[in-house]
Amino acid sequence: EFTQISGYVNAFGSQRGSVLTVKVENDEGWTLVEEDFDRADYGSDPEFVAEVSSYLKRNGGIKDLTKVL
């Protein structure tokens, strides 16, 4: 089950073990991109978060400006 990723309007994530599946949706709710990120592939949590965040930004993730990150 996908849940909204904090700080984004149209990005959602689903966690299974160490694998986080993220997706970005358009205004109609269609999935634009979907990608798996395995936490085990990264040396640290900040590196993992930075990679996921960068992916979302590159692929149309819209920041939720009503929330302070």
Score class of each variant (00 low, 15 high):
E28R: 10
G61E: 01
Y55Q: 04
I5K: 05
R16Q: 07
D64N: 07
T3I: 12
T21L: 04
V22K: 00
D38N: 08
F48R: 01
E1G: 13
G7S: 04
N26L: 08
L20M: 05
E47D: 08
R58F: 08
F37M: 01
T3V: 12
S6Y: 13
V9D: 03
T3Y: 13
I62C: 08
R16W: 07
G17C: 06
V24T: 02
S53H: 15
E47R: 03
S44G: 05
Q4G: 06
G43V: 08
G13V: 12
G60P: 00
T3E: 08
Q4N: 07
E47C: 08
T3P: 06
T3N: 08
F2I: 05
L56K: 01
T66F: 09
I62N: 03
N10S: 03
S6D: 12
A11D: 02
F12E: 01
L20V: 06
Q4M: 09
T66W: 11
E1V: 11
E35N: 10
P46M: 15
V19G: 01
N26C: 09
K57M: 12
V9W: 06
Q15K: 11
T66I: 08
W30H: 13
D45Y: 14
S6V: 12
F48V: 01
L32Y: 07
T66N: 11
K57R: 09
K67T: 11
Q15G: 05
F37K: 00
Y42K: 00
P46D: 15
Y8C: 10
N10M: 03
D38F: 03
E51T: 11
P46R: 14
S14E: 05
L65R: 08
G17D: 03
K23S: 06
Q15T: 12
E51M: 12
V49A: 11
V49Q: 13
E47F: 03
F48K: 02
V49D: 12
G61C: 15
K57P: 05
R16C: 13
N10E: 02
R39I: 04
V24E: 01
R16G: 02
V68K: 11
N10A: 02
I62T: 05
D41H: 10
L56W: 00
K63A: 11
F37G: 01
I62W: 04
F12Y: 12
E51P: 00
V52D: 04
E34F: 09
V9T: 11
Q15H: 08
D27F: 09
I5G: 04
S54D: 15
S18M: 06
S53K: 13
G13E: 07
G61R: 03
G60S: 04
N59S: 07
F37L: 03
L65V: 11
G60Y: 07
T3C: 15
Y8N: 07
V33Q: 06
D36Y: 10
T21S: 08
T31M: 07
V68N: 12
K67V: 12
F2N: 05
Y8E: 03
S14T: 09
K67L: 12
V24R: 00
E28T: 08
T21C: 07
G61M: 06
I5Y: 06
E35G: 08
K63I: 14
D64T: 10
I62G: 01
G43N: 12
S18C: 13
V9A: 07
N10Y: 05
E28G: 08
Y8T: 06
K67E: 12
K63T: 10
S14Q: 11
K23I: 10
G17Y: 05
V24K: 00
T3Q: 10
G61Q: 03
N26M: 06
I5M: 08
K63N: 07
T31Y: 06
F48T: 01
T66V: 08
E47M: 05
V9L: 13
G13T: 07
A50Y: 09
W30P: 03
N59T: 06
K63M: 14
D38W: 03
K23W: 13
K63H: 08
A40I: 06
L20N: 00
F48Y: 06
V22M: 00
Y42C: 04
E28F: 11
S44F: 02
K67I: 12
E35F: 13
A11N: 01
D41W: 08
L65T: 13
D38K: 03
V49I: 13
A40Y: 07
T21R: 14
D45E: 10
V33I: 09
Y55F: 15
L69A: 14
W30L: 13
V9G: 04
L69R: 12
T21F: 04
K67M: 11
F12G: 01
A50P: 00
K57L: 12
S14R: 15
E47Q: 07
L69Y: 08
S54F: 08
N10K: 05
R16H: 09
T21D: 00
E25L: 15
F48G: 00
K23N: 01
S6L: 12
F48C: 03
R16S: 07
E47S: 04
L56V: 06
S54K: 13
D38Q: 02
L32V: 12
V19S: 01
V9P: 03
Y42W: 06
K57F: 10
S54R: 12
D38Y: 04
D36N: 12
D45P: 02
F12P: 01
D36M: 13
L65Q: 09
G7H: 05
S44Q: 01
R58L: 12
V24M: 03
A50W: 08
G29Y: 02
F48M: 05
L69T: 13
S18P: 03
E25T: 15
E1F: 11
S44M: 01
K23P: 00
V22T: 00
Y8A: 05
W30I: 15
G61A: 15
K67N: 11
V33W: 14
V52T: 02
S18H: 04
T66E: 14
E34N: 05
S6M: 11
W30C: 15
Q4F: 08
N26R: 05
A50E: 09
K63V: 14
S18D: 04
W30V: 14
N26V: 05
E34G: 05
L69I: 14
D36S: 15
